[in-house]
Design a binder for these strands. Structure first.
Lengths: 220, 220
DNA sequence: CATAAAAATTAGGCAAGGCTAATAAAATTT
DNA sequence: AAATTTTATTAGCCTTGCCTAATTTTTATG
């Protein structure tokens, strides 16, 4: 079982993420946009991945991971999310700081590492962003992430991530004292402008805009 | 403050280790032997490191780390040893499995990582091989590692590492039931062949050869 | 000191992964 | 269907790090 280069791993991961729904065609351009590089580079790499039997490629159907390629990708995602849990829970990093570090840690190679880390962390199901952590056999829980906007009045949810990561939004959240883990109860939805009235922490009722509610990811 | 490539970091680390005593001249050949590559490659890299002001180079004096280069090297060693503690104590890896993984982890870039890891681990002074962990300010405890051969009769010490890592030696140790942490009391030294009589665990007295005693590193 | 041996350096190349510019092929529009 | 626009692909080049095969330069030795 040969290993992959760092670059190959990054391609596999991006292809895996682009394939989320399995519906849309994964084109060289889509990959180049995700990796922020040139389509020509992507075409080169696709050839290498095809040679290594990690992906299949037909211009008509786009790129598809082979089983082998998917397993590699899932293991990378598994390591990424486990390391995120470690960074957040054990080292105390904020949920906005962990991604870039996990992006490096996910490439550490050792056959037992993911399993040992998982055990050490107590077999977490979700990472600090609410994304499910694939198990050793590749299975993975369903993501329960939804938009705050989709929570029905009367229900309570827990903040797991933000969609918009602009500092203006993050600062607003800070001012409200809403962070990862904050429990929010939806009190009411105003049909007129789709704003909602919510309660959380010591705040008994505040109104937030539609845009706000569409950028906060929660876990029911 | 620019960062270094993986390869540059490895050169700095090797130069730092070769400089242990600060006495012998660090030549391109010595570096190439440590890195297992070609002297010509080393000459190329020395030029890059000189340009980046990480090392100084004069054919007469050999390579010397600048303060800047030394700081980078010490941070790598710090991260390496902290990760070794993590792998051993938290993930339960054996002391012979951690080096290769730490070799990868030491290159993870994040300004707070070493400090947070150090705090999480409870400010360990030594790694699982008995090597001192540099502090954030670059200071470092003295290594107490010595050869079993140098322990005087009547003294007790603790095994921290092996010098010879051949499987024949490791198997012999396993058979004797000596591992990292085993406490050994030196009972007697036989001047004739420099063998020694030692006690450890349930073994009340065994004789080991000079070669044996010169390959076991202990901490007094 | 002259010579042999060892070490350092230079020159020229190679593979990985990127990039730009040019061309070919698809997909859309009209 | 033809024309236009968008994508994909090819060709050629660059940088990083490494290599081999000369060619100096040092260092040791007779």
């Amino acid at each position: 079982m040969q290993t992959q280069t760092l670059s190959e791993e990054n391609y596999l991961k991006v292809i895996y993420h682009l394939d989320k729904d399995g519906l849309k065609k994964i084109t060289p351009t889509a990959i180049s946009e995700a990796l922020n590089n040139n389509p020509a580079s992507v075409v080169d790499m696709i050839k290498k991945l095809v040679d290594k039997k990690l992906v299949q490629y037909e211009k008509s159907k786009g790129v598809k991971l082979t089983d082998k390629g998917r397993n590699v990708a899932i293991l990378i995602v598994r390591k990424h999310r486990l390391w995120e849990v470690f960074l957040h829970e054990k080292l105390g990093y904020g949920w906005d700081e962990i991604h870039d570090i996990a992006e490096q840690l996910e490439h550490i190679q050792n056959s037992e590492l993911a399993d040992r880390l998982e055990r050490f962390l107590g077999f977490p199901q979700y990472d600090p962003h609410g994304d499910p952590i694939p198990k050793a056999n590749g299975e993975q829980a369903i993501s329960y992430k939804t938009l705050l906007a989709e929570i029905a009045p009367g229900n309570t949810c827990r903040v797991v991530a933000v969609k918009d990561t602009s500092s203006s939004f993050l600062q607003y959240l800070k001012k409200l004292d809403i962070g990862i883990g904050t429990k929010i109860t939806v009190l009411d939805k105003i049909p007129f402008d789709n704003s909602m009235s919510i309660a959380f922490g010591k705040t008994e009722a505040t109104t937030v805009s539609k845009i706000f509610a569409e950028n906060l990811l929660v876990h029911e």
